[in-house]
Design a protein around this nucleic acid. Sequence first.
DNA 1: AGATTTTACCTTTAATTTAAAGGTAATTTA
DNA 2: TAAATTACCTTTAAATTAAAGGTAAAATCT
Lengths: 149, 149
Amino acid sequence: MQVDELNWAILLRLQENARYSFAEIGREVGLSSPAVAERVKKMEDAGIIKGYKTQISYHKAGYQLKAIITLRAFMGRLKPFLEKVKEFKEVNNCYRITGNENIIMEVVLRDQVHLEEFIDKLITYGETKTHIVLSQVVDFAAINKSRVK
Amino acid sequence: MQVDELNWAILLRLQENARYSFAEIGREVGLSSPAVAERVKKMEDAGIIKGYKTQISYHKAGYQLKAIITLRAFMGRLKPFLEKVKEFKEVNNCYRITGNENIIMEVVLRDQVHLEEFIDKLITYGETKTHIVLSQVVDFAAINKSRVK
DNA sequence: AGATTTTACCTTTAATTTAAAGGTAATTTA
DNA sequence: TAAATTACCTTTAAATTAAAGGTAAAATCT
């Protein structure tokens, strides 16, 4: 399925705010609301739109600590980890990557105690490196500014 | 502002699908739709809800390459970078972190050529390390499974 | 303690939005 | 060239939202 200019325009709005109504998007891109709904449905079905997520400030909600943790898995421990990681509520995002480390994760924690507990859970799987996030420079939103090619 | 059990329940649904209607959420958590709307509004105002983002499969939309890039900024080049990075459409996410590197970014690119072009843009700011993402193990969604404390 | 304010919900109702159905013109396919 | 498909449209019923006004419980003040 192709993403034409109109679809990029729709995605741009949905990226900006996933709760915009089809009617509102339609007004902006020059389509009727059923037409927008139809296009969105197709992009969902094609897997281009994977979902709609709410961005939560864990900080404001009491989860004060964000960290990036890399994992260099021990022999034979990568697969078990890949299974187990799905259960870790602290893990916001996790990628398998190339390079010296196998895994990179974004985790959200209440405090240092919580971080320590979490790292303890990881040490059976491999060697970890932790980087505390100082601030978020760019947010998901910035992308697509004019990716309408 | 406090996030009580009801609010976590609401956040859980919105996390799962940011386009759920207030009416539907209300049915599930046992509130009227105006009550849900009011609670959501308050969480937005308090900054607990930062926004609603659509998750796009860049892969399916033609952006085949995802990478994690770290940057160790040259003397005096971190600030200019922090300003400039906001303009890079390729950057999905960017954090300032502790450790040997100053910056970690998640970037989305069409192909290797695009990656090369992008890295060229970074080299004036510092030394980079690139990790190609092989697969996404955990998605944003998994979190909050039962963070309703 | 008692009075007052605030909060968190409710219901009702009007305006808006969505979903479904059916139609049409333009493009694609056979 | 004919048939099928596509991408949109309009219309309309059902659902949702937003706004208003009300109430009971909890919190705050005197």
